[in-house]
Nucleic acid binder design. Sequence first.
DNA 1: GTTAGCACTCATCGATGAAGAGTGCTAAGT
DNA 2: ACTTAGCACTCTTCATCGATGAGTGCTAAC
Lengths: 352, 352
Amino acid sequence: MTDTLDERSWVILSATVTGYIRMAAPVGSRAVNRLFGLSYSPATIRNVMADLEEIGYLTHPHTSAGRIPTPKGFRYFVDNSDFSKGALPAGTPKLESLLEGVLSDASPVDLLDVLSTVMNLVTRITHYTGIVMESGVRNGERLLSFEVLPLTERSLLAVLITETGMVLKKVIMIPEGLGAAEVIALGEDLNTGFRSCTLVRIREMLMKEIEHLGRAYVEFFSQVLSVSRQPELKLFRTSSFTDLPEFSSAATLREIMVMFEEEAALFRIFEELVHEERGVSVRIGSENPLPALQPCTLVAIPIMNRNVWLGSIGLIGPVRMQYDQVIPLMVYLSRRLNQWVEETAPLLPLGP
Amino acid sequence: MTDTLDERSWVILSATVTGYIRMAAPVGSRAVNRLFGLSYSPATIRNVMADLEEIGYLTHPHTSAGRIPTPKGFRYFVDNSDFSKGALPAGTPKLESLLEGVLSDASPVDLLDVLSTVMNLVTRITHYTGIVMESGVRNGERLLSFEVLPLTERSLLAVLITETGMVLKKVIMIPEGLGAAEVIALGEDLNTGFRSCTLVRIREMLMKEIEHLGRAYVEFFSQVLSVSRQPELKLFRTSSFTDLPEFSSAATLREIMVMFEEEAALFRIFEELVHEERGVSVRIGSENPLPALQPCTLVAIPIMNRNVWLGSIGLIGPVRMQYDQVIPLMVYLSRRLNQWVEETAPLLPLGP
DNA sequence: GTTAGCACTCATCGATGAAGAGTGCTAAGT
DNA sequence: ACTTAGCACTCTTCATCGATGAGTGCTAAC
């Protein structure tokens, strides 16, 4: 499958892909010849293109049109290009200095905010849609503080803070047969008793305790146990697709918009990517699971702190994405953000 | 301006508007006559329509087309219709029971979540775009708890909880010349000293104190003072516009998508609406400030607790919105949600 | 093995014209 | 005086047609 192309074929494939990225339209033999000043004549290029089409790297919308790279063609292009010295998108130096500013007085405790700010900037530069995701509850985290506060006559507010600064809150109805003061005292016991235990461990221990206690206590504890935190997802510049000719029809735009509303599906994608790759993931066209993502490329990186997944950021654009700019940019972001997290984040647990 | 129409004109205006809402296309005299079984002949209707056009309630895309209501026409229609006994949209009974379920075991402490759940349901029924907004810091709120917790060697986490259950958190760098323990003790003083003072008051008092204290202390306090909370905004089913013929062009869709990314502008709109009206606000077409909102109608209600604005919810749809369904629905939601908040919310402050 | 030449294909675009919906006016009806 | 039927007229929509031009694939010459 992954045949290695000879030099000439590679040059022509590469030129076709680059041309298509630039023009957003099928590129013909003549265009490849002229645009890239190749020494091969259009006729030769045509022959090579026909070969490339046979291996499945290029297609033909119709007889008299130029060639379009297939996802497979893009994949070969991405895998075999050396982007390391590629020019970052215009505005990157500015981004870098802004990024340093953002990171210097922020803490990973506010990860979602920081990543949002970053992707906001990034989408301004790249003109693709940005995604920021923060993973949900991380059960391995340790308890930093647990507090129960009076809210109304019948309810209390339980606030649970983990060592990474995650704040979980939950309104607790005062169980029948218990007074507010009693419940608060109970909360204080919990706070002192379980401090710096992991959340899973606390749950386990509470489960055991529950048997020995009365009904009312059980009710209180089970309410406490249900404190959780949903993963969060934010999108930036979803309107970027409206600028692209291949998404100029209302129908395709509709597909995209509907897809962006399926937060659960998007979340799953990032979850899967994290299990597969730790660096920059590139999913081109049909490599994406969602139908609506098939005309798109997703470039994503996870944000990790010592093997614990905190969240991810990604860019979604057309298949003819400016890989030469986006990939180096994401490599850079991955390195910088993960370094920042490791350096400034509160300690994370080692075991589960 | 607000001429009162005679019976016949009103019937015909009303039929035209209703017809246009239903057909999404200019409606002609014949259609009005047939569709609504009016006793006036097409010719008469034509005459009346010409009159209505002269007063500015209807327009003409071109000579041989039917009539379209102007925003002014819609406004008259909305103001003079009695929607009170109008049928709620299909699925409303189900919504009501779901709503009761949601409200029964939720607290206004999680207002954003609750409103999000509600609007998620509502947008499923109405097929319009939903907006949920939670207002930001409410300085009049009283302090319920303030806690400083160790996070890393050089930083602490300050967690501030207000009486409405809002949790504000902020990472505080340990000021030079102070130890972590000292800072934590300082936080505890603050907690006991200022409990149940309003946030503004606390800020005022801290400002005064600051003068008497050393550099390091000042630094700590000023970090604490900067704790704040941004307003939040969520959109639901923005793709609803893709189903409407009047937004079927990619260009108009683009406008809509870009507008929905302008969170600040949307926020401002809700802020202004709250100052103007306490019930259901209806902004039709050109009555909206944003250019991109001109082909839209916004129906919004604020969520209040004793004159304190907690947030808003709204529906955005085409100008030819199903007012007869949406308005009663929003009236109902306004009543039910505000009642719920007043009944179950933690006490809110009276003065500033 | 490479390239020039040429016939052929096919999408795009503008012009043309028929169809159809709806108006506005006039004149007749009540 | 108000209402309605009739009819010419307007203007959009849609399909058809043909010209245009880009680009290919093949063949034959280099």
